[in-house]
Design a protein around this nucleic acid. Sequence first.
DNA 1: TCCTTTTATATAGCAAGCTATATTTATTTA
DNA 2: TAAATAAATATAGCTTGCTATATAAAAGGA
Lengths: 152, 152
Amino acid sequence: MQGMIFEKDSSAGYLANQMARLFAAGLQRRIRPLGLSPGQFPALLALWAKEGRTQKELVQLLDIEQATLANTLARMERDSLITRRASEEDGRVQEIFLTDKARVLEKEAVGAAIAQNAEALEGFSEQEKAQFLDFMHRAVAAMQKAQSGNSR
Amino acid sequence: MQGMIFEKDSSAGYLANQMARLFAAGLQRRIRPLGLSPGQFPALLALWAKEGRTQKELVQLLDIEQATLANTLARMERDSLITRRASEEDGRVQEIFLTDKARVLEKEAVGAAIAQNAEALEGFSEQEKAQFLDFMHRAVAAMQKAQSGNSR
DNA sequence: TCCTTTTATATAGCAAGCTATATTTATTTA
DNA sequence: TAAATAAATATAGCTTGCTATATAAAAGGA
C-alpha cells in the first residue's frame, strides 16, 4: 500500500455498482412497456409463484428491508399490480394478491429478465457463466457473513 | 424456456444488485466515521488525484449522469468536503477544490475501500480475483455496447 | 449587432435502497 | 384483567441513481 494507487476500474465494489446499474437500466428499458419497474421484480416473482403471501413472508424471501418492501408494495398497489386483503385471523396482517393485469405479465416479464441476463453475458461460455455466478454468490456470502458478525 | 423456472438466486442481474448493495453497506459502515458516504467516493478519488476540475470533467471521468453528480457535489459542499470557485474565463464554469478536511481523509478512506474489497473477496485466490474483475468488465462492456447501440 | 444555438450547471420529480420511529393489533405477564 | 411487550405494517427522512427540463452564459450566424 505504497503509492496509494487506487483505480476505481479495478475495484470490485466500483464494478459491482456499475454492473448493477447497467442491469437495472437494461431491464427497465425492456419492462417499462409492460408497466413494470426493476424494483418490483423480486416481489412479482414471489407472487407469481404463490399469491396470498403476507408482507412479512415476502421480506423473508426477498433480501430487502421491510421498509423498502412496504414502499415498493405501495407503488405496486398504486399501479394496480397488487391488491391486499385483511387477514381474518390477525388484524395486523394483509394478504397480497396479484391483479389480472399483473398475472398476465409473467411470461413477458420473465422473458425480459432472461434476455437482459443474456445481453450481459454475451460472449461468456457456459463454464464462464457458471463461474461468474459462483463468484458473485461467494462475494455475497462473504459480505453477509461479515455484516452479521458485526451486529452481535 | 418451458417450465418458466426463473430463480432469482441464479440470475446475474439479481446477484449484481445484491452484491452492489452489500458493497455499499460495507463501505458506508467503514467510512461513515470519517463523515463520508459511498456515493461521494468516485468524485473524491478524482479530486484527490487532481483538484480544480470542473463538473463537466468529473462527469466525463465518473460513469454517472450530470444531474446525479450535480446533486452529489451539492451534498459534498453542504458537508464541507469541497468548495467551488467561479472560473474567470467562463462564467458558466466552476472549479472544484477539496477542503483541508477532505484532503486529509485520503489515506483512511482509500484504506477503507481496499478493506471492503478484501472482505468481499476473502477466500478468492489471486487468479480468481483477476478473473472475477475480468468477468465484471466484460459484462459492463457488453451492456454498455447494447445500450449505446440502442439510442442511435 | 441581434438572434439562435450550444454549453455548463441546476432543478424537478421519480424509484429504490437504507435506518429509525410510529402505529396498530396481538400476546404475555404481573 | 390491565399493563407491558412483541409483532406487522407504515411513515419520516435520507442517499444515490435516473430522465426531463430550466437557467444562464458563451459562441456563432444572418
